[in-house]
Nucleic acid binder design. Structure first.
Lengths: 231, 231
DNA sequence: GATTGTGATATTGTCGACAATAGATCATTA
DNA sequence: TAATGATCTATTGTCGACAATATCACAATC
């Protein structure tokens, strides 16, 4: 339990840490919508220099989580449920395109990799906390197979905050709901991979979108109950 | 006509200048694919501090024009014609979605604004050098009307470098071809705006995509002749 | 009383210097 | 000689300080 293995071997920079910390603070509700993020204050709080902090803020701004104005500073951007739905809608569009292009370039090794990930997710003994990581890995793999760097960049940009939000809310939710974290899947991943590898394009896209939507329903309900308890 | 635009006089920061300068250097071919961008050297060259330079590099990295590696520095990323086509394909997808959503939320003022821009573009006396700016303005307006911030962010991120590249190549091309800069339009803008305001969704999307593709053909041929003369 | 000008203050933009790291150089050894 | 390891150098990551700017309070003017 206590022996967590979350630390990647790759050494993360200071701005990486700050970036993740601020994002976590936003999603967990400690930093609220419209909250002004003063560089000096934040730098003191995290005990880092303003340079690293500014780099983190710039990344958050790029991701659309904070708003940067010249000589006016950074503010936490408003993330309404409607905007989250917008992000999800765009994600559905791009993931469909990724599936379309991935199907065209699929090699045998790609199939093996996809099935391997799906089996990891299907394995009943899998650590429930690892589920979202594996799920994310599956999506990323499909993006890579598509061979379309542009699509990859935009999908990462779009999905990364959604994924982080889901994970953070999952860990901060009340313990009674913890159980259903294990059956987020909805569409099971084996069927999805099968459709991508050997099904029709339409079928693959449909399963992918259903899979995303099913997971989204869970996350969205978490967000709403989180917002209720918050106010 | 009398619609004066005040806001564009915001003074640009140092990193804005450097960002634009490096991007220009990349598109004009002075900085070639894979070229290492040393911070100290670039900072000296532009006579700015490394802080501003790093900020510019980070933006270029977000835009996908340079690659940043920890403790290894920045390199100009490879932009093959195939990758440009990828970007265009994604743009077609997103612009179609923008048109779709804009049509649903269109107000009378929106119509007026769109027609005003289209007339500016249609006006035979318009400065040819202003054409791409107005064209960009038309697209941005449609994105805004869609009301979808996420779509806006991703479209800006995607189109901004394409637009910059087109503009830079236009100005650096040999003077004999300058004439056809005035008739890039392809689909004329009035028809496009009419379709968006009063046509069917399919018609509007089709005209939008044809318009983008027509302009792209011109830009792409410029890129190819530029690459030929380059080697 | 509302508006405009002026100054104080807090915050961001920019800079130069130091610390940490990667890559190259070169000596050492089997 | 080829492989190995220590050292050296160039470059990036991080920091604290100064300059430029926005915001607020308050006085002056109509």
């Amino acid at each position: 339990m206590g022996t967590s293995t979350f630390g990647k071997l790759k050494q993360e920079s200071t701005s990486d840490r700050i970036y993740a910390a601020i994002r976590e603070a936003i999603f967990s509700g400690r930093l609220k919508t419209g909250q002004r993020l003063t560089e000096i204050q934040m730098a003191k709080e995290f005990e880092v220099s303003r340079a690293s902090l500014r780099e983190a803020l710039q990344r958050l701004s790029h991701e659309g989580l904070v708003e940067l104005n010249s000589y006016k500073g950074a503010r936490v951007i408003e993330l309404t449920p409607e905007q989250l739905d917008e992000m999800l809608a765009l994600r559905l569009l791009l993931e469909a395109e990724a599936v379309r292009q991935a199907k065209r370039r699929l090699t045998q090794t790609d199939r093996d990799v996809l099935y391997a990930i799906a089996r990891k997710l299907h394995n009943p003994g899998v650590n429930p906390r690892a589920y979202p990581t594996f799920d994310f890995e599956l999506h990323q793999t499909i993006w890579e197979i598509s061979g379309n760097r542009t699509l990859q960049r935009h999908l990462s940009l779009l999905v990364s905050p959604l994924f982080a939000m889901g994970t953070i809310l999952r860990y901060s939710e009340s313990s009674r709901d913890r159980s259903d974290s294990t059956r987020d899947a909805g569409v099971d991943h084996i069927s999805l991979v099968e459709a991508i590898c050997d099904g029709t394009e339409e079928r693959a896209i449909e399963l992918m979108q259903r899979h995303i939507l099913d997971n989204w329903k869970v996350t969205r309900s978490r967000i709403e109950s989180f917002m209720k308890q918050d106010s």
